[in-house]
Design a binder for these strands. Structure first.
Length: 462
DNA sequence: TCTGGGGTCCTAAAGCAA
DNA sequence: TCTGTTGCTTTAGGACCC
């Protein structure tokens, strides 16, 4: 999907269409999650500190992400993909690989192109948004193709043309080459893909180590046989918070770690998981980051156990000078707990006395709502008199609302007191009024398998 | 006003057992 | 018994991705 978060906001807010829109954390330490193409013109891009974005594009609209809404839209797109093939590998809310050959949806370039064209039309019909499609014989190439297709395009990399295409491209094009590896290679005089090939496999391994070296050399030769895998098991669950100002008070640090442990447990339980290894993450005032971990004898999802482990780990870290981020995570996951095993053993002797109700973890303490927290920029609201709108900004006891809907003309702005009884938070409205019947033609493309594996990337964000 | 949050994978060191 | 090798597990850190 193209500039996904920003595009969703533009689709639901007519007054923002064609305008610079930046979605991300709005606090003093926020970063950009997605910038609309209009905002990118000013040099704003994802992962950029919000403060810098505001300097570059002071007149852009700045909104907080609405993940629940994005997830719902993402799910509709994923459904379209799953109609093409059972092998769909989501990479994020806005990107996925599809193995078209496995789905019998396509077997040669012509049929694949047809599928891509139809898919893009279906995405538009179902979500009102644009998506880009890259078609190629491997995941790496499909991904590169989809990058080239953005925004709102379709690119096919024809078999046989891969090496010539990759050769002059930057090493940074290849998956797994980020800033650090890019620098490393540049210092060795390697800046393009063909220079990787010229350097040779041994040199790459010498420079980058075994796994990375072999892997990158193969990619440079356009060799990539990684399969599209539909169901990948979660390996870890974690939560973390960056604080608006550094925390110096050791007692407060301890309390935050307990809260994070509880949040982590909640997530763990929602996923029906438990884990053996507890990880504490601390980012200090100077941005230096350290982790401490402890592995238990068996997996647990017990809030007390995880809280205690996190507290023990905190004992071993020096927080003088202040901390800017704290995190708690659990890995070594299982879908049972040590206690289950004991219970099972016990259950073989005695009949269960009925389920023991664990006290719900850490609920109750929903913050007494700073007015600004109640009216996050970009979130939908409903006013008894003026109808549906969204928060344009809030502060100083006021909240400014623009009244418009996805289907309306750009609307008018009005300002209210934050405690105005006529105003209440609302759910997002659907972006398209009518979902076309039978769009997508689920499973309607029949075919037998064919030549090389064929991956199709639907991609965006960038 | 410098630098989010949720993940994955790899490496290296150290301890331990065979 | 001493020494060296190998391999597994735990821990810590780093790079990368969206």
């Amino acid at each position: 999907m193209d500039a996904f978060f920003a595009s969703v906001e533009q689709a639901s807010k007519p007054s923002l269409r064609g305008k610079a829109v930046v979605v991300g954390g709005l606090g003093p330490r926020g970063v950009v999650a997605t910038a609309s193409y209009e905002a990118r013109v000013f040099g704003v891009h994802s992962a950029m500190p919000m403060a810098q974005a505001r300097r570059l594009a002071p007149n852009a609209a700045y909104l907080v992400p609405r993940f629940g809404f994005y997830r719902a839209i993402s799910e509709r797109v994923m459904e379209l993909l799953r109609a093409l093939s059972p092998l769909v590998e989501p990479l994020s809310l806005d990107e996925a690989f599809v193995d078209l050959e496995a789905g019998g949806a396509a077997w040669d370039e012509q049929s694949a192109r047809l599928v891509g064209v139809r898919l893009r039309a279906d995405i538009r019909a179902v979500t009102g948004l644009t998506g880009s499609v890259g078609l190629a014989a491997s995941k790496m190439l499909a991904k590169i193709a989809s990058e080239q297709a953005k925004p709102d395009g379709l690119v096919v990399i024809e078999p046989g043309t891969e090496r010539a295409m990759l050769g002059p491209m930057s090493v940074r094009t290849l998956p797994g080459v980020g800033p650090a590896t890019g620098d490393h290679l540049r210092r060795a005089g390697i800046t393009t893909v063909e220079e990787i090939v010229e350097a040779g496999e041994d040199e790459l391994v010498r420079l980058l180590g075994k796994a990375h070296g072999h892997g990158l050399y193969a990619m440079a030769l356009a060799r990539d046989d990684r399969p599209v895998v539909a169901e990948r098991e979660t390996k870890s669950v974690s939560v973390e918070d960056t604080y608006d100002v550094d925390i110096h008070d050791r007692v407060r640090v301890g309390l935050e770690v307990q809260r994070l442990a509880d949040r982590c447990v909640r997530r763990l339980r929602e996923a029906g998981l438990s884990g053996r290894t507890i990880v504490l993450k601390v980012r200090r005032y100077d941005f230096s980051t350290l982790t401490r971990s402890e592995t238990l004898r068996g997996p647990t999802d017990d809030p007390g156990v995880i809280r205690e482990a996190a507290a023990r780990l905190l004992d071993s870290v020096d927080t003088t000078g202040g901390v800017r981020l704290l995190g708690v995570g659990v890995s070594g996951l299982a879908d049972y707990t040590q206690e289950d095993l004991f219970a099972q053993a016990a259950g073989e002797r005695a009949v269960a006395e009925g389920p023991v109700e664990e006290p719900a973890v850490g609920e109750a303490e929903e913050q007494p709502a700073l007015a600004e927290r109640r009216w996050p920029a970009g979130h939908d609201v409903r006013h008894a008199e003026f109808g549906h709108g969204w928060v344009q900004g809030s502060g100083l006891g006021r909240v400014t609302v623009r009244f418009e809907t996805p289907a309306s003309e750009p609307g008018r702005v009005r300002t209210f007191r934050v405690d105005d009884p006529e105003l209440e938070p609302a759910d997002p409205l659907p972006l398209v009024l009518r979902i076309p019947e039978g769009s997508g033609g689920a499973g309607s493309v029949a075919a037998e398998g064919g030549g090389g594996s064929r991956a199709c990337g639907v991609s965006g964000s960038g």
